[in-house]
Design a binder for these strands. Structure first.
Lengths: 120, 120
DNA sequence: TAAACATATGAATAATTGTTCACATATAAA
DNA sequence: TTTATATGTGAACAATTATTCATATGTTTA
């Protein structure tokens, strides 16, 4: 045994070095799942639009729905996802609930995304 | 007419100010779609894992598949998506095609995402 | 309390998408 | 040219998900 040339394009050494990188430098699988889940949240234009409104002001659900011309239910569902992922926070004031940005990572991530798609 | 109180929770003034923000400060719809599309690309753990490998080295398709324990076809499909969105570039060398990162926005975006999920 | 308003949410539907399978294309070696 | 290796890709299936509809919860006012 061990007398066979690897069928892959690369030598055994390179391949083993790669596996080492994968095993040592890559974050644990669960963290990668969480990371992908976070970016999924940014991967919907309705949620992106909500975040752009919240860049400017603290806004209640009703006004968000009105400003974006969508139903209150649809906005509420999306706000739930944004909140679960700690991108927004909320506070109740009487009958209304006001939403605002949770932290500045949101701005940075979206700014970097915009920079990327605006290249050449 | 105009004798009706708005049924929404906010006054007419606040609502109109919001609509102004939405119309003036928010990027055009098409750009928001492109932005969401970009983040969708980051929203899959297979693609995230591919990017983490490419953080360390320029790698051919075959080795990526081997390192990540996935079929070559699955990797190839995902590389196509990454390339269409200009997150990776490639070059052919004989039978193999080597992939590498296209630019540094990828690192920044992923770094910010990691910072976010690692908070408390 | 009852009625009205603001928000939240479960169920259902339509649309999107990741992987597999089979096969096509591209390059190198025999 | 034939064979083998590496990569690309269309079709199909399963899984995920955004919105709608109906309704429930929470708050204020009459």
């Amino acid at each position: 045994m061990n007398d066979k040339v690897p069928e892959c394009c690369e030598s055994v050494e390179v391949h083993e070095a790669l596996v080492k990188i994968v095993n040592e430098k890559m974050p644990p699988v669960e963290e990668l799942y969480n990371l992908a889940e976070l970016f999924k949240v940014f991967g919907d234009s309705t949620r992106i639009r909500i975040l752009f409104v919240l860049f400017e002001a603290e806004v209640c659900v009703c006004d968000l729905a009105s400003a974006l011309s969508m139903t209150q239910s649809a906005i509420s569902h999306q706000l739930r996802i944004l909140k679960q992922n700690k991108l927004v926070k909320n506070r109740r004031e009487g009958k209304s609930v006001f939403y605002s940005l949770a932290d500045d990572h949101v701005r940075t991530i979206i700014a970097q995304g915009l920079e990327h798609i605006e290249e050449d």
